[in-house]
């Protein structure tokens, strides 16, 4: 069953076509990867799903209901959470408070302060930030700020999590931890849709991969199929991927 479906998604920025007539679906409980060269329209697509931007044409359905035309906070409360390519934590708030914003406001129901704090503490442990709960978010390393964004997104109790380049800028150890985290998130029953440039990560973690190029979907399939696809190799992976 698909949790997210999109048809004919088109977005222009002035004369530039960022996305032209994209259609896709995300299945419940899977980890779907989104790859493509810079400027392919990946982040724009995430922006459209999370309602940061309105599409020019096309419809997006989440659990069968149309979510295009909603405001960002409404999409979040329906159960779609996201992280950002360039980290956007609340820098002067404590790490714990960052996550609590998610518990307090990201859900359709009201959450008591005690419950919000309890869950936030648990989520910080889940992403490995327990030791930093009391310090301001600005003092975290880049990798930890990214983990904090994940915890904050999870605090909104999402059913679908959009991860925008979670592993960009991380070192190999941190990438390993992040890959493990993505799998653990899926094991909590949360569907994951992730943009990633780190090929090792995307090939190992994702069940399915979608490839964008110049605003068009050029391929879709299992990691094996994508690695073998001639078009994908030409526009994105490069010859060395044959090896």
């Amino acid at each position: 069953m698909s949790i997210l479906e999109a048809e004919g998604i088109t977005k222009h920025f002035g004369g530039l076509t960022a996305l032209s007539g994209i259609g896709f679906h995300v299945d419940q409980g899977e980890i779907l990867g989104l790859i493509g060269p810079n400027g392919a329209g990946k982040t724009t697509l995430f922006g459209l799903i999370s309602a940061a931007l309105p599409p020019d044409r096309g419809v997006i359905r989440f659990k069968g209901e149309v979510i295009t035309g909603l405001k960002p906070h409404q999409v979040c409360r329906r159960g779609v959470a996201r992280t950002f390519q360039s980290v956007k934590v609340f820098p002067n708030m404590s790490v714990l408070a960052n996550v609590m914003v998610g518990s307090f406001f990201g859900r359709p129901n009201t959450v008591s302060a005690a419950a919000a704090e309890g869950e936030s503490v648990e989520l910080l442990e889940f992403v490995g930030l327990s030791a930093f709960a009391a310090i301001p978010a600005r003092d975290l390393t880049l990798a930890n700020q990214k983990m904090l964004e994940v915890a904050r997104a999870l605090a909104t109790a999402p059913e679908l999590l959009l991860l925008d380049e979670l592993m960009a800028g991380l070192n190999p150890t941190e990438i390993g931890l992040a890959m493990d985290l993505v799998t653990r998130i899926r094991d909590r029953g949360i569907t994951v849709f992730m943009i990633e440039h780190v090929m090792k990560a995307i090939m190992c973690v994702c069940e399915r991969i979608m490839v964008l190029h110049h605003g068009e979907k050029i391929a879709e399939g299992t990691p094996k199929e994508i690695a073998a696809s001639k078009t994908v190799v030409e526009v994105y992976l490069g010859e060395s991927a044959y090896a």
């Binding site: 409360r77 996201r82 934590v89 914003v101 904050r152 909104t156």
Partner: peptide, 15 residues
């Protein structure tokens, strides 16, 4: 949260 990072606040469910 709005003062700190308005876009993130909106996507974290703050109206």
């Amino acid at each position: 949260s709005i003062g700190e990072q308005e876009e993130a606040a909106a996507h974290t469910g703050v109206n």
